[in-house]
Design a binder for these strands. Structure first.
Length: 231
DNA sequence: CTACCGATCCCCT
DNA sequence: GGGGATCGGTAGA
């Protein structure tokens, strides 16, 4: 029996997928593993929710007004990371897609933790303290809350994926397909039929025109409790 | 349960 | 100087 039955049989095939159009790439990223290897612990999880973003024709994309210092990675080589900060406190991770020079990327919106769940909870607490979102709740209270976070909430939502995997600006432009990279993508060891995928409008893009906001460019694995917005 | 709203900072129609 | 590919605490039904 083949080791993989989900279609992406090998890293070269994954690289080829990411080098192509963003919508198939977004679907193909579902089910893959996101890995943070800090030399001490190996945090990993299954990608269960993503959003596709395009270039100048996509009113919701950071690339809608062309290349800037902030979005330069979107125009770079596929398979690399595009990391940006929003609202002064959240880091979001994208996988760059398309040919070099073409702007497109896939936002990782939710991950199901597989290994080092406690390290992810700890990383969540680090962010909570760093952003000082613990005015009313005392630090001890915040620590207790973080420790009690259900597994399927730890990396649910793009900001929480960033926190749980300690995504930082230095990850911007890094090669996510490098097997030795500190932040990387890996093939899922899971064998079986391809999971059912659902699609819908992207989240938080109301500022873009009606046409862009209506595009069903958000994809998720049906039934995953880690999907954001499904509290 | 839903809905609002403040936090906070980098980057830019 | 304004706004954002978010989050979570709080208020109120």
């Amino acid at each position: 029996m083949k080791a993989r039955e989900r279609g992406l049989g090998s890293p070269p095939i994954l690289a080829g997928l990411l080098a192509g159009p963003v919508l198939p790439a977004a679907r193909g990223l579902l089910g893959l593993l996101l890995v943070r290897d800090d030399g001490v612990t190996l945090r990993s999880g299954r990608i269960v929710e993503v959003e596709a973003y395009g270039g100048p024709d996509d009113g919701a994309s950071h690339a809608r007004h062309g290349r800037t210092p902030r979005n330069a990675s979107m125009f770079g080589p596929s398979g690399h990371g595009y990391v940006y900060g929003v609202y002064g406190m959240h880091m979001c991770l994208n996988v760059v897609c398309g040919a070099d020079g073409v702007a497109s990327a896939v936002l990782i919106r939710a991950v199901e933790p597989l290994t080092s769940l406690d390290a992810m909870r700890e990383a969540r607490l680090v962010r909570a303290i760093a952003t000082r979102r613990i005015d009313r709740a005392t630090p001890a209270r915040a620590a207790a809350r973080t420790a009690e976070l259900p597994a399927d909430r730890v990396a649910s939502g793009p900001g929480n994926v960033g926190a749980a995997f300690s995504v930082q600006r230095s990850d911007d432009g890094s090669d996510l397909l490098d097997p030795a990279g500190a932040l990387r993508l890996e093939m899922s060891p899971r064998v079986g039929p391809a999971p059912a995928v659902a699609a819908g409008p992207r989240i938080g893009v109301g500022f873009s025109g009606a046409e862009s906001a209506a595009r069903p460019w958000r994809f998720w694995i049906t039934g995953s409790a880690a999907r954001s917005g499904s509290r």
